[in-house]
Simulated assay, not measured.
Amino acid sequence: MILTHSVKVRVATRPCDLRKSFDTLSVVVRDELREDPLSRKLFVFFNRSADRVKMLYWDGSGLWILMKRLERGRFCRPRALSEDRPAISLKPEALEMLLSGIDLKDGMQRAWYELPEKP
């Protein structure tokens, strides 16, 4: 996934039921994250087991949903800074690293993400 530096990224710190789609994720953004789902921010949600991620984005003409399911391993889901903050901001570069298997806390690529070398 390619993100420009101008995209604002908001990551939900609580697990989300990823069976939700456009309308119900928009309600989560509005009611739980207290944000506008049409604000042109990229909203990122992880499931409880952190092996799936779903993103919601308004591009000005419609909503996009992008989802990734890991075949093995888990994402290193960012944690809340405090209980009263339902989302945190990430730079697009940090989201790219997180989705690429980099543990943002330790700066190390997780072993499950290592790709086999080509012969």
Rank of each mutant, 00 (worst) to 15 (best):
I2S: 07
S100I: 04
E117I: 08
L18N: 05
W64C: 15
R69D: 10
D17Q: 08
K54H: 10
D36W: 09
L70W: 15
W112E: 07
L104T: 03
C16Q: 13
L99C: 10
T13S: 02
T4Q: 13
L81W: 02
K20W: 00
E96A: 12
R10G: 01
F75C: 11
S61E: 14
L56I: 13
D31H: 12
E93M: 02
W58I: 02
D23H: 15
M67G: 15
R74L: 12
R79C: 09
R85E: 13
D106K: 15
R79T: 07
L104I: 12
K91D: 05
K41W: 06
K91S: 06
S82Q: 14
S39Q: 01
Q109T: 14
K20E: 02
L25N: 12
E93P: 06
F43M: 07
V44T: 08
D17W: 14
E83M: 07
I2Y: 10
V11K: 02
R72N: 14
D59V: 00
T24C: 07
E114L: 10
P86G: 08
R14M: 09
C76P: 04
W112D: 13
S21W: 11
T24I: 08
K91T: 11
L18Q: 06
W58H: 11
M55I: 11
V53N: 02
D84Q: 06
R48N: 04
E83V: 07
I2P: 04
G60C: 04
G73M: 09
V44L: 08
E71T: 11
A111P: 08
L81V: 01
